[in-house]
Structures are given as C-alpha cells and as structure tokens.
C-alpha cells in the first residue's frame, strides 16, 4: 500500500507498507526531504513497523518521535507529516 503527503512548506513524504494481522509491516518511508544523520530514516521505519493499523496520526507521530535519537535534524519532514502519509497509505492505499 502506498501513500504520499506533501508537507506544507516542506517536502514530499512517501510511505509504502503492508498490513499483516492488523499491524504495519515492511514499512518504507521515502521522499525528497533532508535528515541528519542519514540513518535516522531506518529509525523512522523501525518505529512504524508493527504499529497497530488502527493507530491515529497522533499515536504514529509519537511512536516516531520516541524512536529518534537526540540531535536528529529534520528539514522538510516531521513525525506528524510522516504520520499523515502513513494514514493515507492505510486508508486510501492502493497496492503498489
């Protein structure tokens, strides 16, 4: 399933995922945003993996925030914007 969200004043956030037994699986966040250091992307993917497919945007954003190491810098992307893209993938996602 595939969802996209252009963060207002930011960049495009793309989410590809599957749902297995009601949970998010094989989550891949991508896009033309900026992250320092670059391995923060894996932390974001890992934070979303296994989350309940019924989780709302607030819960998803909190899960991402909790997983990010101190000092991670985000430009054109935020935990909230990723959460919107995840919800879009779940709610209106088509099979990629």
């Amino acid at each position: 399933m595939h969802g996209e969200y252009k963060m207002p004043g930011g960049k495009l956030i793309v989410v590809d995922l599957a749902i297995e037994s009601g949970c998010l699986a094989r989550v891949q966040v991508s896009g033309d945003f900026f992250l320092e250091p670059d391995d923060a992307l894996h932390a974001i993917d890992a934070a979303l993996e296994g989350q309940d497919a019924g989780a709302d945007e607030h819960m998803l954003a909190a899960a991402i925030r909790a997983q990010l190491a101190p000092g991670v810098m985000m430009y054109g992307i935020s935990p909230e914007a990723v959460a919107v893209a995840v919800r879009r993938a779940i709610d209106q996602g088509t099979e990629a």
Binding site: V14, D16, S30, D32, F34, L35
Partner: peptide, 9 residues
C-alpha cells in the same frame, strides 16, 4: 536521486 528517495518510485 536523493539519499532518501525510493528508487522505483
């Protein structure tokens, strides 16, 4: 492509 972009997308 950018560091965080999906190749196939």
């Amino acid at each position: 492509i950018g560091r965080f972009q999906s190749l196939r997308n």
